Computed example of a mutant assay.
Amino acid sequence: MKHLIKQIGVTALLISTIACKEQKKENEENVLPDPTVVENSVAIPDTWITNRVKKAKERLTASSAGTVIWNSMEAHGGLATWFENGPLGMRFNYQPLEKDKTQRDSYEIVDPWNNRVVHTSTTDKEATFGYTGEIAWIKADSTAFAYDTKFWALTPLYLMGHPFVEDGEGVNLELLPDATYKDKKTKVVKVTYDAGTGDAPDDYYILHFDADTYLLMATRYIVSYPEYFKNGGHNPEKFMEVGELVDVDGVLLPSLLKTHWTVDGMPGEYITKIEISDMEFVSELPEDFFEMPEGAKKL
């Protein structure tokens, strides 16, 4: 009888185990993929990054001005790290101190590899605008963004992304005489662009780098956007102080920019405070993230 009970017990255990396995298999077959888990389809292959960085180094270090830029890229974490980290997310809060100027505050995710971006209003998550690399678009009511979103789409990247943005096509570099800023010797490089590069090829940037560390200390620049200056020309030069640099996954990026009018090559009247927060490199994005969304308006 003991043997019979034991045999029945073993048989029951086997049946129970088989049933559990079948149920588990059935449950596994019925599990749907989690829609919030998205493969990073916008990731760039490592070999592409290696090749682009190699070419950038060869091109930049062939000139004295380019060597300063390359050294600064290395000091800020390296061009390879900048690209390997993927798209950059940040809140970019542009706050003019002049009463008649418009604040521009949005959360954006920008793809430095392809110059693509999506901005989202900080007060209305349904209000967005962006640039696909070819098309500027907006999906919002007329009051959500009281400024030229086509112009602004990539502007934050070109205000805070130096020296990495000097990797692009159509960039010309000129080494200017050394200068002194905040009692420190600076290496100075002027950046201009070939005709047809971007929407405002007449823009220029004059970058001041600490001569010892090669970290960016200040940027002088003009705005020549044709929609603002229909008969040519540009606004007066601005002098932008670079505030505290923070380490974002191995890349040093500014958390504060303070813009002044330039007076004799130095900062004059303080006119704009720019706070950059919530910086993070975004590791997972759907393949169509930077495409123009359904219902958006082409600009």
Rank of each mutant, 00 (worst) to 15 (best):
A43N: 11
I222G: 02
E126W: 02
I5V: 15
P286K: 10
S121I: 09
Y94N: 07
V118Y: 00
A80P: 00
G243E: 09
V246K: 13
Y94F: 15
E237G: 03
K54F: 14
K182V: 10
M292N: 00
V118H: 00
F164P: 01
V189R: 04
L245S: 07
H208A: 07
T102L: 07
A56N: 11
A62R: 10
Y214T: 03
D199E: 14
W261H: 14
L257C: 08
L79E: 05
Y225A: 11
S63H: 04
I274D: 04
A136C: 06
R59G: 01
F145K: 03
H234W: 05
L154P: 01
R91D: 07
D178P: 01
H119R: 08
K99Q: 12
G243W: 12
V282E: 08
E98P: 00
Y158L: 02
P177F: 07
G9A: 15
V191G: 03
T155I: 02
R116G: 00
Y205S: 13
I271P: 01
M90F: 14
E275F: 05
G77T: 08
N231I: 01
E108A: 13
T180E: 15
D34K: 03
S255A: 14
F164K: 04
I15W: 11
K190S: 08
A62L: 06
Y270A: 03
A140P: 10
T81M: 08
D141Q: 05
I274N: 01
E98V: 13
S64H: 05
N71H: 08
E58C: 00
D183R: 11
S72F: 08
N30C: 05
V223E: 12
S64V: 10
A65W: 03
A12D: 00
E237W: 01
N115L: 15
P87I: 09
D278W: 04
V189N: 03
T123N: 14
F209C: 03
A75C: 05
T149K: 04
G233W: 07
L299D: 05
A80T: 11
D249T: 12
A19L: 14
D100M: 10
A56K: 01
S277G: 05
S283I: 00
P201D: 15
Y107R: 11
P87D: 08
Q95I: 09
S224D: 14
V117L: 07
H162N: 11
E284W: 05
G89W: 09
R104C: 06
V110N: 02
Y147C: 06
A153S: 15
M217W: 05
T192K: 04
D210L: 03
V42T: 15
W70P: 00
D100L: 11
L299C: 02
G295S: 09
G66S: 06
E98N: 11
G233V: 06
G78D: 08
V251C: 07
T11Q: 06
L60S: 02
A195G: 01
E26P: 00
F83G: 03
W261L: 15
L245W: 09
M1N: 09
A144H: 03
I222Y: 02
E74V: 15
S283A: 14
D194C: 02
S64T: 13
M160W: 10
